[in-house]
């Protein structure tokens, strides 16, 4: 396997990791705000903050990690996406900045403040929406290169149903992933009142997820035939995804095995996400950047892979420690520590 293939696989895996942890975080922010708004915050907000407080920074690093990795392995991406995304990218940066800092202000500061919580909840939906634009752009047709200048065709972007369906999918998935995780966390904490509320959220957001996913898939077929066909060739991955979704739904509906239900949700997104990614291969930006054409020099590629393996050897035990202390320690989850 060549280093650029290892690179893109690893990065895609990291992006998947970010998708899951960030969705939990983003969605939890929204639910925390929504619960305060509807005066149900006494039920779930303590639970949410017990989970989020120790991990929010880690979530943020996942994102920077993916970004630095892709620029490192494929420097051309910086040139094309950097030029094209200066405005939407800056908006995402500002939203991330507001979110991260206001989380800390709300949580570690002494006084609770509904404005902070609103900013935190609202950005939780806007960030995935703005980040998902990058996925839309990679389909081609929106980034235009004329001579030496690269620019973004905003009109084409805003009038295209594909971009809106991807934005919708991003928001709905965030809410679905997050609520199914929080249901699991609440069941671990044996917090029945919270569980009842969150399970309702999860069931509510499940159907829209699958409907919007299908819609986006159909629009993808109209916009980028090649990508669509490649994904159809991977039909078994998509079928697996639907199957995992069904299992998760069944478990949630019957109100048992919330841990398994969340694993099924993770697998549902894993299979769909990889079907999407493998279908897009070899393009990173259709038609300008492919994995092979933009890869950095072999020396740098190898250095990055080596660092990556070394880094994982340090990170995985540390992450396991975090999980052990905050996720699988029943007393902590229940709020006794």
């Amino acid at each position: 396997m060549s280093y650029e293939l290892i690179g893109i696989s690893v990065l895609w895996l990291f992006l998947y990791g970010y998708l899951i942890v960030a969705s939990i975080d983003f969605g939890a922010g929204f639910f925390a705000f929504y619960a305060r708004w509807t005066k149900q915050d006494h039920l779930i907000n303590r639970l949410i903050s017990r989970y989020l407080s120790p991990v929010w920074e880690i979530t943020n690093v996942f994102f920077v990690f993916f970004y630095i990795g892709i620029v490192g392995f494929f420097p051309d991406t910086a040139y094309y996406y950097g030029n094209a995304l200066i405005v939407p990218g800056s908006i995402a940066v500002i939203l991330l900045a507001i979110r991260g800092s206001f989380y800390a202000f709300e949580n570690y500061g002494s006084k609770k403040n509904i404005v902070f919580l609103f900013l935190y909840g609202a950005t939780g939906l806007l960030i995935p929406a703005s980040l998902s634009v990058a996925l839309t752009l990679s389909e081609g047709g929106f980034i235009v290169k004329q001579g030496e200048t690269v620019s973004l065709d905003y009109w084409a972007l805003f009038t295209n149903p594909l971009s809106w369906s991807i934005v919708g999918l991003a928001i709905v998935s965030v809410l679905f992933i997050s609520s199914s995780f929080l249901a699991f966390y609440a069941s671990r904490a044996e917090d029945h009142a919270a569980l009842k509320l969150i399970r309702g959220y999860a069931l509510f957001w499940s159907t829209p997820t699958i409907i919007i996913a299908l819609t986006a898939f159909i629009y993808l077929g109209q916009h980028n035939e090649r990508h669509f066909q490649n994904m159809m060739d991977l039909w078994w991955l998509l079928a697996l995804s639907v199957a995992f979704f069904m299992i998760a739904m069944w478990l949630l509906y019957n109100g048992r095995r919330y841990g398994l239900a969340f694993i099924c949700v993770m697998l549902q997104f894993f299979t769909a996400f990889f079907a999407y990614g493998i279908g897009q291969y070899p393009y990173i930006l259709d038609p300008y950047i492919t994995v092979q054409s933009s890869a950095t020099s072999p020396a740098m590629g190898m250095a990055l892979v080596v660092v990556f393996i070394g880094g994982l050897c340090m990170l995985i035990p540390s992450l396991l420690l975090v999980f052990k202390l905050f996720l699988f320690d029943a007393d902590y989850v229940k709020g006794k520590k």
């Binding site: 970004y67 910086a78 040139y79 996406y81 030029n83 800056s90 690269v150």
Partner: peptide, 15 residues
């Protein structure tokens, strides 16, 4: 958050 901003600005402002 400002560190995230500067790392993204590297590509956005200095492509």
């Amino acid at each position: 958050v400002t560190g995230t901003a500067i790392s993204l600005q590297l590509a956005l402002v200095w492509p």
